[in-house]
Amino acid sequence: MSLYFIKSGLQTSVQDCGRSGQMHNGISNSGAMDPIAMKLSNWLLSKPLDSAVIEVTLVGPKIQFENDMYIAITGAKFELYLNNQLIFNNKAIQIFTGDVLTFGTLQCGARAYIATSIDIDVAKLFNSYSTHLTVNFGGFYGRSLKKGDILALHLPKQKCLYTNTLPKYVDNGYSGSYILRCTSSVETDLFTQRQQNDFSSKKYTVTANSNRMGIRLKEVAMGFEKPIDITSSGLMQGSIQITPSGLPIISSVDGQTIGGYPRIANVITADLAMLGQLKANDKVNFMLISNEKAIEVLKEQYQILNFLYK
């Protein structure tokens, strides 16, 4: 029972919802960078939503299946081929032993997720199957998959009897230009009103240095008359830190748990999944909103995607 990686892709790894509750030990959450797309792939196969999946980044893999099963691919849109036949994402796909799945050109977004009806066989560490790629533990030997790897699957418990169909209202186009909504952070008050205005009036470009630790942006957000010195404290996912040279870094799933750069704002929970779909040269704007509004937006998201939040 396995998947054979004929090609690995750029950064293909085993992920799930991540390991929460370990930040006080220095262990970041990890897990899928777009948890909505990740859960959706499991939902399409009627699997527990936190089952381990394969995260694909920018350049996808080529995989041979050693068993009959179903798969579902969600998130970033790629040209997809099954034995050279064009197939589509966001639906269950029946696979027969020997079939070969090929990821072609990326059309939009940055990360896709492959769910398999048969569970991926990797060990749980700190209650998660996810791979921490900067520290190299968890998932498949703590690393991304390489050409020639064989990813083991469990013995199927039962046949995949029924699959779900994506509701039409779930829009998952990725335009490449995004507004990230954010709320106040620990050091927001230490920035001048002018600096805060500068920050939210600019359009930023995502740089190629971005990864699962953080999204690094081009375009200086602001100048500093004097540096903001802070004592390091707990750093949440989505924190927008401003480096001494004025460049913003948005902390992400594999980011450090304690940080020393001042934070001007934090991306709201409802928009965190979008960070997983940012790629080099995408454009980003920030919009500061109230905490009440952030919770309202989150509630709307829960309502629209209620099948992902059981």
């Binding site: 929460s20 930040m23 006080h24 390091s232 404290s233 707990g234 949440m236 304690i258 989150l298």
Partner: peptide
């Protein structure tokens, strides 16, 4: 969800649902 002590601070990560 998690609680992160630091030199002069305590960060409380909570479930906003």
């Amino acid at each position: 969800i998690d609680i992160i002590p630091a030199y002069k601070s305590l960060t409380i990560f909570f479930n906003n649902r």
